[in-house]
Amino acid sequence: MSTDPTAVGEIDTTLFITVSGPPGCGATTLCNQLADAMGCPYVSGGDIFREIAEDQDMALSQLTAQADSSEKIDRAIDQRLQQIAEKWGTANKPFILESRLAGWLAGERADLRIWLDAPEDVRADRIEDRVETEAEMRVREVSEAGRYQSYYQIDIDEREFYDLSINTARWSKRGVFELVRTALEEYDAEIDEGAFSTPAVDP
């Protein structure tokens, strides 16, 4: 048996999973663990956003400000994520889609929708070594929430359709993974009585 506390075993599943949450919630860590265990790829909306910033030689705060003044950036990212969700929703292969709106954009194509969160001070500590500062993190959260409401009439605080909602400050990284692993391994489509419906989003 491995003594590595971060080591993960294989998960035999074909589920399409979305992972969402605010900056510093632990989504990247969980997605990396799940991708390794499930032997599948994952796509992150944050990575797409950062790639755009790099391509335009802009800081994240600058691109956020530009996104505030124009719908084009957000809608382009969301359209791409929705296209990916449409592809993998019918593939019958394991896949992970991660973004603040992943659960909304994937809708009922997703087999399992996960929301991660943690207290603001914990999340701020977690992003200390990132390019984004704590102040920028808070500005981005407020900015994104306003844009989602304006563009799609989405209240990001509406979370009833998520299948799992986890406060990642209460468990270790391995512990959070094990919670999700149990959900995946115990899932049985034959006894699934149905997910909450998700309003359609049209980027």
Rank of each mutant, 00 (worst) to 15 (best):
1 M>L: 08
2 S>N: 14
16 F>A: 04
21 G>T: 02
23 P>I: 06
28 T>Q: 12
29 T>S: 13
31 C>W: 06
32 N>C: 12
35 A>T: 02
38 M>N: 10
39 G>V: 03
39 G>Q: 10
43 V>Y: 03
43 V>N: 02
44 S>W: 08
45 G>R: 03
48 I>V: 14
50 R>A: 06
51 E>V: 00
52 I>N: 10
54 E>D: 14
55 D>W: 08
55 D>K: 14
57 D>M: 12
61 S>L: 10
69 S>V: 02
81 L>S: 07
82 Q>E: 13
83 Q>A: 15
84 I>N: 09
88 W>V: 00
92 N>I: 00
92 N>L: 11
94 P>A: 08
96 I>F: 08
97 L>R: 08
100 R>V: 06
102 A>C: 06
105 L>M: 07
110 A>W: 02
118 A>Q: 01
121 D>G: 00
122 V>E: 12
126 R>S: 05
126 R>N: 04
128 E>K: 15
129 D>Y: 09
134 E>G: 02
136 E>R: 00
139 V>E: 13
139 V>I: 08
139 V>N: 11
141 E>S: 08
141 E>L: 12
147 R>V: 10
147 R>F: 06
148 Y>Q: 06
155 D>K: 06
155 D>W: 05
168 T>M: 08
170 R>M: 15
170 R>H: 14
172 S>Q: 10
172 S>R: 09
173 K>G: 11
173 K>N: 15
176 V>C: 11
182 T>P: 00
186 E>D: 13
188 D>P: 04
189 A>F: 11
195 A>H: 15
197 S>Q: 10
199 P>Q: 02
203 P>Y: 09
